[in-house]
Design a binder for these strands. Structure first.
Lengths: 144, 144
DNA sequence: TCATAATTAAGAATGATTCCTGTTTAAAGT
DNA sequence: ACTTTAAACAGGAATCATTCTTAATTATGA
């Protein structure tokens, strides 16, 4: 293979792969695989969920997508690949970026306090997004 | 019910529940539900995995145990219930406490930079534990 | 254009966790 | 202590996100 697509690694430029990468780069929120499947299906109706999962994995292995584990059942995928932190709404599950600079110093701080060889860390914030916070006020007393 | 067991909440003191809490408090690492099941089985041979799951959930709802999501497939459970951070070995999956004081100020730092109402955050470190780091050196070049 | 290795759709399999059902047990009120 | 009953139990089925399998298709290098 001569075309070193996307990253300089050998990776075939397929229709599904291209659309997945384009679509995830269009949005700032961090969808689940199933949400990506629904988005991609609009442009590629016969795409299968397995293909979406596989390509999101391959793209994340090649550093083109970040794979995030938050406090819900599904993985989330992020088209922004520089290191940064995330926040998730505890009510609706929406997951987004946090504009907080990387705390590079805490790895070294921990390095001195543990026998582990530290490789990286993750920070996740949890709270209520604007929409859910409003519901919370107007719906006070109601069981959600 | 008059006896307000464990926490002041209505919670029955059953054999399984008591043993689960005793055993998780004996260890500093943070086992999965299945690992707890194996430990509890030694004292209560007829215990079922479902009971271990249910009790770990109930205990965590009552603040007697922490339920941790790290970067592997299973949940981990922590008998130490004051807020603190965790580290996981990327190779063997062992999960332990990190002696790093809580960064309370980062919630407020983020509060000013986002429209979310921040409730809490988590920090997880990943690296190699002593044992796995040694293997890594002695086994250099080998596929693990 | 051809060969072939990678990718695909579709659906089966996996694995952690939760749920269901009928039975047992802890504890509240006598 | 005896009774009552809601909670908890064991065992196994169900769920759900994700991964795997297979036979057919496709992108790429020659």
């Amino acid at each position: 293979m001569k075309n070193l697509l996307y990253t300089g690694k050998k990776i075939k430029k397929t229709k599904a792969r291209t659309i997945i990468l384009e679509e995830i780069n269009k949005i700032k929120s961090h969808p689940t695989a199933y949400e990506m499947f629904e988005i991609v299906k609009q442009r590629l109706p016969r795409v299968s969920l397995g293909t979406v999962y596989r390509n999101l994995d391959i793209l994340s292995e090649h550093g083109l997508v970040l794979k995030l584990k938050m406090n819900d059942a599904q993985m989330h995928y992020d088209g922004r690949t520089d290191e940064h932190y995330h926040i998730q709404c505890v009510k609706c599950g929406k997951t987004e970026d946090i504009p907080l600079e990387m705390l590079k110093d805490i790895d070294t701080a921990v390095r001195d306090k543990t026998s582990y060889r530290i490789l990286y860390h993750t920070i996740s914030f949890y709270g209520l997004c604007t929409g859910c916070a409003e519901e919370d006020v107007s719906g006070k007393g109601k069981k959600v």
